[in-house]
Amino acid sequence: MSVRKKICMLGGFAVGKTSLVRRFVSSIFSDTYQTTVGVHIEKKDVQLGEREVTLMLWDLHGEDELQSVRSSYLRGSSGLLFVADGTRAATLDVVLALRQRARDTIGDVPAILLVNKCDLPECELDDERLQALQDEGWTVLRTSAKTGEHVEQAFVELTARMVAD
């Protein structure tokens, strides 16, 4: 029997949350930036050994001064995927703020930080800074929704942790 788990995608705007979900769910990617307004939910079944897990992927709009993520959206989440744009260091600050808000709302749930757009050469988030986050307990993966690098791995890894919890 399949179990249903909710995952929220959290991060600043234009970091690639929707692209990551689309890459994972539909294996498609578009270079055109289309901002998300509100919430979009996608569903994906994942097979983990003998267990089938139905992931409800809550693709939340990006956090900025124009749109703030409602804490209530996070309730019921079994896992969180925080997304930063590797070419925009400031998006990591947004992630850290969202992480704190998530902790205040739903406590500690399995989470992974995705440093997206790793296919682009203009990297602003260097290894030292990411290593420091890993030392603090973060799981960090460099991903590319464009090439698919580490995308499947990120979702499956988080799912495995949620199921194990």
Partner: peptide, 24 residues
């Protein structure tokens, strides 16, 4: 309203991205 709001956010965020790109 939603279309207008979406268009506004799209424009605003694209402008921010362009600004950040120019700054870099």
């Amino acid at each position: 309203n939603f279309r207008e709001r979406s268009a506004f956010l799209q424009k605003a965020r694209s402008t921010v991205l362009e600004y950040e790109g120019l700054r870099r």
